[in-house]
Design a protein around this nucleic acid. Structure first.
Lengths: 202, 202, 202, 202
DNA sequence: TATGAATGAGGCTTCATTCAT
DNA sequence: CATGAATGAAGCCTCATTCAT
């Protein structure tokens, strides 16, 4: 009970630093997000940064984890209409994805672009777990049998295809293609892949 | 008559620098590829590097363009069996893609991963043009009518989905998923998308 | 009566801090011994550290003094056999020295190595006084006349020669020379110097 | 033949940096010798420092090696009178040592004090080799048989005793003991040890 | 032209010490 | 008194780029 104030103070600092990191990333990009800038952005000295995070990477990791949880929560809140057919479901997810990428001044966009240089192990775990859970729920509800054998391969393909195609679409400064069209196309592709025949060729 | 040698010398130097850049990238990654290293790798002074390239980015751009042309040439040489059905065609392309990503000690892999930080406008143009041309040829040969209206959208989706899913697959150090399975899955998804009904849902 | 507890508390804190300093030195070396670490090691806040010690150096000084007293006490307890000839006496002292250097996980070793960077004035006083006293006792017991004139010089030479040679020996990671041999050699040298003719050359 | 100017330039820079390091050490001590200061002292940018030395330690190493060679050269030039008896020889060496320690504004003093924190492997090799050679020459000239068995132990003891006793003497700001007396005492001790009976006790 | 020495801003991180609670 | 969060100067090192030769 006596530690509360301290913990709350700590928590506030940690949050401030994570938020500052996010802000720097949207403002200067991942490359331009330096420890001095983060500290300044948080209105704090560099020393404080290192009191709460062992490392610049630790900050990125914390930010990633926080965002992953935010996304997971938002996903959970997505209305999954009982009667939803696969097309609406996938379409909804993709629109949700585009919304995310367009939100927060491109924070997610920049993070996903730099995926391979960031400490993403934890984040990936969180999200993957969530998506697999969603898929399982869906299949259990709509089909007794679901392709458990290659579910992982399918999820991998679907997730990455969707994600990076969206990233690329949003990254195109000039609106060469309309987001609506890309969303629709992606949806069709995914639905066709997940819902249709699965045998090789034929 | 006296200019030839000079120009040839120039050409050789430019090539050496571009090759050195590629070598540095495979060896040290994009981040570890510094101008002094490139110069040393090319057996040339930094000064010379800046004589021929205004900028580090210019070098990357030149490398990208060169590789794009290499890839385009290789694509052209791909045997497209007259009788090829769509599945074999796409499957072949995907296998070609995996081969590329696994070739040259991961050079393409590293470059595509860092896509957004590199000057890729020209490269994208070259490759996109090529793919569109391929698609047009295919459709002209096999279908009188081809969906010219949303061909660009489809190519965009297919290209990016395939490319980044492959990159992610090859990036996974631990072989969680077998490349064969991913290739097969991707192929099925693409074929289903390109070859099947195209109307929105229904 | 109300002050007692406070003073006892103070004493305990001071001791804890000094012990923590010693522990940090053995664990991280003199360079790695930071005030935050000491405080943490002592289970105390940095602030408290500065309540009791004006300065990091003050802590080192206190540690030095404490250890000097420990050593002095241990020296006093050394059995000085009545019949001891000089060789046994010196040999015993040197073995005692090696034991010290090898004890406490190298605490003394590390401190003596860093002699010149630490506040050692007081320590030197304590030890020097002790050694001179020992010497005086010995000479009084065994020789009526003792070279009071250059006793200080001799003690200085003997003490430093022995000490730093031992330190260097113990510092050698690879056991190039056997400690036994060095101890024997040192003993011979010292005995020869203290016991033999003292005139210049001859 | 065309590389000369460059090499000379390099050589000059390297020398300037090493000299600057020496100067910083005498002026600010080993702890106060920072890379920015060294660079400034040499009238050069930090970057240049790192063009010639991979590391701060590399600089210290180079300085050490240079000084070791200087000392070795000076030792070689020492007049070793044919007729020298051991006392004069050792006395000369010790006086030479004191001269060194008092020279160059205490550069050697500070370096030897910080022996254990500096990269001294090479230096030790150079000097040890030199001293062993000297010893061999002496013994060969003066005694057919020389105690080859424990020569290493003896040299180790003599060298360290002498060196660190001298260092401690010169370090004493207040001239508690006269250097002359310490030199004489050391000489006597060494001569007694090296020249006299060597059997254990007796 | 070719060279490569030189630059210096700027990145990451540490730690002795203070001060508001 | 005790606390420990906060500070910020300072250390080490990198690298894109320039410029005198």
């Amino acid at each position: 009970m006596r530690k509360q104030p301290r913990q709350r103070r700590s928590r506030r600092m940690v949050d401030a630093l994570i938020d500052a990191t996010a802000q720097c990333i949207t403002q200067y990009g991942v490359d331009g997000t330096t420890t001095p800038r983060i500290a300044e952005c948080a209105g704090v000295s560099v020393g404080s940064l290192y009191q709460y995070f062992s490392d610049k990477d630790a900050l990125f990791e914390a930010l990633g984890e926080k965002l992953a949880h935010d996304v997971a929560r938002a996903l959970k809140r997505l209305p999954l209409p009982e009667s939803a057919n696969l097309h609406d479901l996938v379409g909804g997810a993709i629109r949700f994805g585009f919304d995310m990428l367009n939100s927060r001044e491109g924070l997610f966009l920049e993070l996903i672009r730099n995926w391979h240089r960031l400490p993403t192990a934890r984040v990936a775990d969180v999200l993957q777990g969530h998506f697999l859970e969603l898929a399982r729920l869906y299949f259990i509800k709509h089909h007794q049998k679901y392709p458990i054998e290659d579910l992982q391969v399918r999820m991998f393909i679907v997730a990455n295809s969707t994600l990076f195609t969206m990233v690329r679409q949003v990254s195109q400064d000039e609106g060469l293609l309309r987001q609506e069209d890309v969303a629709e196309g992606l949806t069709n592709m995914i639905v066709g892949y997940l819902g249709g025949e699965t045998g090789p060729s034929r």
